[in-house]
Design a protein around this nucleic acid. Structure first.
Lengths: 115, 115
DNA sequence: ACATTTTTTCTAAAATGTAGAACATATCCA
DNA sequence: TGGATATGTTCTACATTTTAGAAAAAATGT
């Protein structure tokens, strides 16, 4: 099993988990994904990605207590691990480095012409 | 519209193609990938990804003339299209926005700042 | 009790990522 | 001239990630 590799969707889900904090459970994350990207996402996609990320050690999870709301069953709350965190950072730095080497995007001026 | 979606490896290959310019052909890209990431990559992986990116319209390609070097046969040179370019930018901006919402990482990195 | 809501778990598929063998075409040098 | 060797592409197959939604579980409302 390759421990340190993550895909694009996985990266986004990991980031959203960090952003949502205490509220990071599958359904809420899917909701946030849709609102931030404008693209629909299936709940299954989010669930399977979350558990894969947990298998890889980038996330850890814990069941919350049930709430007093209608249908308010226990949620599986996800938290980023130290490894997940550093993987995110590495990925970010790598992409940033590539962007900086891309002619026309290196620094402040985003003007670039395509043939 | 599922046309505008790319994966993580695809994104890296697209970026490397842009960075390499006139020298962007499969073998060279694979070489650059290894030197930039430190991870090995098979030539087949790069080839299939490049042609997939071309099918999606993010890259276009053209055969070069053979060179006078030993074994210097014709290369397939890839170039980023306008669509490929804007897809890259969209992806970069989206990730940046997520990072800025991530508590403790709202960075003021100068080379990335959008506004 | 039974319907309804929120949420997870399970199953299956399509798309992306990975690997390397097979093939083609160039130069080098006896 | 032609085989050894180098550079590249094309092809084929398989693994992993991404996507979708149905089914099951656990809570409240009436």
């Amino acid at each position: 099993m390759k421990e340190t590799r993550i895909g694009d969707f996985e990266e986004t889900i990991l980031l959203l988990t960090g952003i949502l904090g205490e509220d990071a459970y599958a359904l809420r994350i899917a909701e946030e994904f849709e609102s931030q990207t404008g693209r629909p996402v299936s709940i299954g996609a989010v669930h399977s990605t979350l558990s894969r990320l947990e298998d890889k050690g980038f996330l850890r999870s814990e069941m919350s207590e049930a709430t007093a709301e209608r249908g308010g069953r226990r949620k599986r709350i996800y938290t980023i691990t130290a490894i997940g965190h550093s993987t995110l950072e590495t990925s970010r730095e790598f992409k940033q480095s590539l962007w900086n080497q891309f002619p026309g995007f290196a620094t402040d001026n985003p003007t670039w012409q395509i043939s």
